[in-house]
Design a protein around this nucleic acid. Structure first.
Length: 477
RNA sequence: GCACGGGUGGCAGAGCAGCUAUGCAACGGACUGCAGAUCCGUGGACCCGGGUGCAAAUCCCGGCCCGUGCUCCA
């Protein structure tokens, strides 16, 4: 079945047809590393991680580029506030990014270009734009002139030049720059004293916000490429500016075949943002929740929908993920991971999951199938089913929950979960068994208060007792 | 105001023309001294008003409501 993706520019789901047969180039806007990554960054990273995983699984070769905008106003602000070099600020936040995204099981991109390593290409592109009449040099930098290509306005957001003029309202006069029109945007910003800068034909300065992505995508993916992604908040002005720059510079359109935008993270129904005070860094979140549970939460809705990050959602994910993980690791240690292709139910589940993923990467539909398979695996384990059935279900989960969705730990780790549990169990086993024996005799003589007392004692040890038809069983919480 | 998304059971969230979504919660039953776990089962929804279909959560039109964007932002 064909893979269809929602393209923001055409506002429709379209079949993904590679420019070069068998190959897909993806450029996704990463972060500006001026502060530690927040869960919105995580959502973006996870969304595109899964997109890349699925396209690869579909048999296409993917070249995935994610950038770091490692020089910008905010980085400069932090560096001057702290009195350290701007690169120190950028580097430590990039380190943080890799640390948390690795924990979230995000597969690394094929390249992570940085602005500071792309300055010559940026300068060349700006020069081209000036030569072709799309940009002009002002007293404080170089600007792209919107009026040279008005038809490209609103390609992603549907806004017209006039709308933005109105929307900008009184701010038009506040630009305080050499812009001819407030909607023009900076390609090159002249350095103020003390700011980091690079030499250019227009004097020392640094790139404007949008040009870096046009230059880096051109450098790494060429004059036309398949997918450009990023958060939906980047559609305007960032991605529309990229369309101006790339298409005007290269002289053809479209440069990008498909624009994919992930939805935002909301906290209690409102967009998460620093100004709202409802801000979570990834590390904040990881203090409370396992990384894979966080990942589960982030894919609990299709990537374009907003995800509301609230305690109920997290608890829900924790519960469901915990069950999945327990079933998986128990099944794995019991029967290993086997082939599932001969199993009718599992094949059907795989088909449903695939058609969900093929429909613009619907991870929510995929999770339903994962939950269903995990549930039947649990039942098989409890009913002592045939080992080959168990291993088939384990193999299925390894492939889809593991490789495709990335919500399972490595087998080694999964096995260590059951091993650790078993070890902890055997360590206190004799004490627990003795107490249970005493409790059983109390129960025999209908001494319920003594029986409950012992149960409470066990609970305080972290042991949960469950009476069944075959006598009591216990497990460690 | 304009643009883009969306409004589905108690909650989260699929489905996007006909056929049980799913999970959590609730309720009933089995099992229990009680509790828990498990199993079986049940009820319950498609914002409002029109329209087009044999048939509409699903398509069209008009409202209302919510989120995001229009400024740095994943």
């Amino acid at each position: 079945m064909a893979l269809r993706v929602y393209d923001t520019r055409s506002r429709t789901k379209r079949e993904l047809v590679p420019l070069i047969e068998g190959k897909i180039g993806i450029y996704a806007c990463g972060i500006t590393p001026y502060s530690p990554s927040h869960i919105g960054h995580a959502r973006q990273a996870v969304a595109f991680d899964i997109i890349v995983r699925w396209i690869r699984k579909s048999g296409l070769e993917v070249n995935y580029i994610a950038n770091f905008t490692d020089i910008d106003d905010k980085i400069i602000a932090v560096s001057s506030e702290e009195g350290v070099d701007f690169l120190e600020v950028a580097n430590r936040n990039i380190e943080d990014y890799f640390e948390v995204m690795d924990a979230l099981n995000v597969i690394r991109a094929d390249a992570y270009p940085r602005v500071t390593e792309t300055i010559p290409e940026i300068i060349e592109m700006i020069g081209d734009l000036i030569d072709k009449g799309f940009a002009y040099v002002a007293n404080d930098g170089v600007y792209f002139e919107i009026d040279t290509a008005p038809e490209k306005y609103g390609q992603l957001t549907g806004q017209t030049l006039e709308m933005v003029r109105e929307g900008a309202g009184g701010r038009v006069d506040e630009t305080g720059s050499g812009k001819r029109d407030h909607r023009d945007f900076a390609l090159w910003k002249s350095a103020k004293s003390g700011e980091p800068s690079w030499d250019s034909p227009w004097g020392p300065g640094r790139p404007g916000w949008h040009i870096e992505c046009s230059a880096m995508s051109l450098k790494h993916l060429g004059e036309r490429f398949d997918i450009h992604g990023g958060g939906s908040d980047l559609m305007f002005p960032h991605h529309e500016a990229e369309i101006f720059q790339s298409e005007c510079c290269l002289g053809h359109e479209p440069v990008v075949q498909y624009w994919l935008h992930n939805g935002m993270i909301n906290v209690d129904g409102e967009k998460m943002s620093k100004s709202e005070g409802n801000f979570w860094t990834v590390k904040d979140a990881l203090q409370q929740v396992d990384p894979l549970v966080l990942r589960y939460t982030l894919i609990n809705a299709p990537y374009r929908q907003p995800v509301d990050f609230n305690p109920v959602m997290i608890e829900d994910s924790r519960l469901n993920h915990g069950r999945l993980l327990r079933a998986y690791s128990e099944g794995l240690s019991l029967a290993g991971s086997g082939d599932w292709s001969d199993n009718g139910h599992l094949s059907e589940a795989a088909e449903r999951l695939s058609s969900g993923m093929n429909d613009d990467f619907n991870t929510r539909v995929a999770l339903v199938e994962v939950q269903t398979v995990a549930k039947s695996l649990r039942q098989m384990i409890e009913s002592d089913s045939d080992k080959s059935d168990i291993s088939a279900a384990v193999g299925w989960l390894a492939e889809f929950a593991g490789n495709v969705l990335g919500i399972l730990p490595s087998d080694e780790k999964a096995l260590s979960i059951t091993a650790t549990e078993a070890a902890a169990r055997s360590e206190i086993s004799s004490v627990v068994e003795a107490l249970l024996e005493e409790r059983e005799s109390a129960r025999q003589s209908k001494n319920w208060s003594r029986a409950d007392e012992i149960r409470d004692e066990l609970i305080s040890m972290g042991v949960v007792v469950e009476d069944g038809a075959e006598g009591p069983t216990w497990r460690i919480e």
